[in-house]
Design a protein around this nucleic acid. Structure first.
Length: 249
DNA sequence: TAATTATGAGAAT
DNA sequence: TTCTCCTAATTAC
């Protein structure tokens, strides 16, 4: 269930467990060639939006994108055998991570790493994100704000759950067009705050007082006011919004 | 045991 | 706009 907050969580956890160590890399499934990485030292694990980059000595960066179904299984004991479908196992002395069902798992030469970064907008979970640029890009988006939020070239890391919940928190109708810079800035601040909560909690947190609850995402009724949640397609995904708390306009 | 569903994104039409 | 790919977890039967 990987939106940006979980990808950052994976990066932080794996960096802490594996960085600075020599990796044992294998592909039980056989669909990845581990040879450029096996036996080399992992320098860092970096998240950018929904993308993971593993920086390994004397090897191209390893690029992982989980897509909709990808996940990692973590093992404290690297001796635990991986299940057969594991695309890649990254193991060091005291931990192993099994990558399952990624959409992308590939070596990425430096020019393609650059191209990847260039293709992504500011990531609310990165310290080097430029808030002004984030505001510019969202305010410049021509279509509905709900479609723009899913466009990784506008902001990187937002997925369908965060779209629904952040727009609710901002009181914005996802169909709204032409969001002014001030509103875009408020939305960015909400994203920075809540994605960090979500990264630390390991799940979407849109109400810190009730971390397991959602305001509108996949709900029949708004958790704040009880109105019937509006459900429709926006940006090729299902959108959810409260017609009362996110009035059109 | 089987059906159902999924938080993505790129390519194909 | 529709299709396609990838697997686990949950729910239903």
């Amino acid at each position: 269930m990987p939106e940006g907050h979980l990808v950052h969580r994976y990066a932080r956890e794996q960096h802490a467990a594996l960085a600075g160590q020599v990796l044992a890399v294998s592909s039980p499934q056989g669909r990845f060639d581990p040879r450029p990485y096996d036996g080399r030292t992992l320098r860092s694990v970096e998240a950018y939006g929904k993308h993971l980059l593993y920086h390994v000595d004397d090897a191209p960066a390893l690029h992982v994108h989980l897509g909709m179904r990808g996940l990692f299984l973590a093992h404290d004991d690297p001796g635990v055998p991986p299940r057969p479908g594991v695309r890649v196992r990254l193991a060091a002395d005291r931990a192993a991570y099994d990558l399952i069902a990624p959409v992308r798992c590939e070596p990425l030469p430096p020019d393609r790493v650059r191209a990847l970064r260039d293709s992504l907008g500011p990531d609310p979970l990165r310290g080097d994100a430029d808030p002004d640029e984030a505001v510019r890009r969202l305010a410049a988006a021509r279509g509905a704000v709900g479609a723009a939020l899913l466009d990784q070239a506008v902001w990187a890391g937002i997925g369908n759950v965060w779209r629904a919940e952040l727009l609710f928190l901002a009181g914005l109708d996802p169909d709204r067009r032409g969001v002014p810079p001030r509103t875009a800035g408020e939305l960015w601040a909400l994203g920075v705050r809540h994605l960090a909560l979500g990264r630390d909690a390991g799940q979407v947190v849109s109400d810190p007082a009730a971390p397991d609850e959602r305001w509108v995402y996949k709900r029949d009724t708004c958790r704040r006011c009880g109105a019937a949640v509006r459900v429709w397609e926006l940006g090729a995904r299902t959108a959810y919004a409260c017609p009362v708390d996110q009035p059109p306009g």
